[in-house]
Simulated assay, not measured.
Amino acid sequence: MKNQVIEKAISICGSQVKLSQSCGVSQVAISYWLNGGGFNAKYIPKIVKATEGKVTELELLHSLSSTEA
């Protein structure tokens, strides 16, 4: 199941590669996050910054809790 919030972040940044560069991870990691693999909470501030606040901490936290269900 795709993580809709990560999908939104990718769309805002323009590509998985651009989001990965902003977060300091590989494009493969972004793909993993996108496809429901979950991500470490330490990346939340980096994703928020990369999207200029268009993806919020709360959205990201909710997306993490929904992937654990």
Results as ranks from 00 to 15, higher is better:
Met1Gly: 12
Met1Thr: 10
Met1Gln: 10
Met1Pro: 05
Lys2Ala: 10
Lys2Glu: 09
Lys2Asn: 11
Asn3Asp: 13
Asn3Gly: 09
Gln4Asn: 10
Ile6Leu: 12
Ile6Trp: 04
Lys8Ile: 11
Ala9Val: 08
Ala9Ser: 11
Ile10Asn: 06
Ser11Leu: 15
Ser11Thr: 14
Ser11Gln: 15
Ser11Val: 13
Ile12Val: 12
Cys13Tyr: 09
Cys13Trp: 07
Gly14Gln: 09
Gly14Trp: 08
Ser15Glu: 08
Gln16Arg: 08
Gln16Trp: 01
Val17His: 08
Val17Trp: 03
Lys18Glu: 14
Lys18Val: 11
Lys18Leu: 13
Leu19Gly: 00
Leu19Phe: 02
Leu19Glu: 02
Leu19Met: 10
Ser20Ile: 02
Ser20His: 05
Ser20Gln: 05
Gln21Ala: 14
Gln21Trp: 07
Gln21Tyr: 10
Cys23Asn: 00
Gly24Val: 00
Gly24Lys: 01
Val25Cys: 03
Ser26Leu: 02
Ser26Asn: 04
Val28Met: 02
Val28Tyr: 01
Val28Lys: 03
Ala29Tyr: 05
Ala29Leu: 03
Ile30Thr: 03
Ser31Asn: 04
Tyr32Asn: 12
Tyr32Gly: 05
Trp33Ala: 07
Leu34His: 07
Leu34Pro: 05
Leu34Glu: 11
Asn35Met: 06
Gly36Val: 07
Gly36Pro: 09
Gly37Ala: 09
Gly37Gln: 03
Gly37Val: 08
Gly37Ser: 07
Gly38Ala: 07
Gly38Leu: 02
Gly38Phe: 04
Gly38Asn: 07
Asn40Met: 08
Ala41Ser: 15
Ala41Tyr: 03
Lys42Gly: 04
Tyr43Gln: 01
Ile44Met: 03
Ile44Val: 15
Pro45Ala: 05
Pro45Arg: 01
Lys46Ile: 02
Lys46Glu: 05
Lys46Arg: 14
Ile47Glu: 03
Ile47Tyr: 00
Val48Phe: 07
Ala50Val: 09
Thr51Asn: 10
Glu52Cys: 09
Gly53Val: 10
Gly53Pro: 09
Lys54Thr: 02
Lys54Ile: 01
Val55Ala: 13
Glu57Leu: 10
Glu57Ser: 15
Leu58Thr: 14
Leu58Ile: 11
Leu58Trp: 10
Glu59Asn: 13
Glu59Phe: 08
Leu60Trp: 02
Leu60Ser: 02
Leu60Asp: 00
Leu61His: 14
Leu61Ile: 15
Leu61Gly: 04
Leu61Asn: 14
His62Phe: 12
Ser63Gly: 04
Ser63Asn: 04
Leu64Tyr: 11
Ser65Cys: 09
Ser65Ala: 12
Ser65Glu: 15
Ser66Glu: 15
Ser66Pro: 04
Thr67Tyr: 06
Thr67Val: 08
Thr67His: 06
Glu68Ile: 15
Glu68Gln: 15
Ala69Trp: 06
Ala69Thr: 13
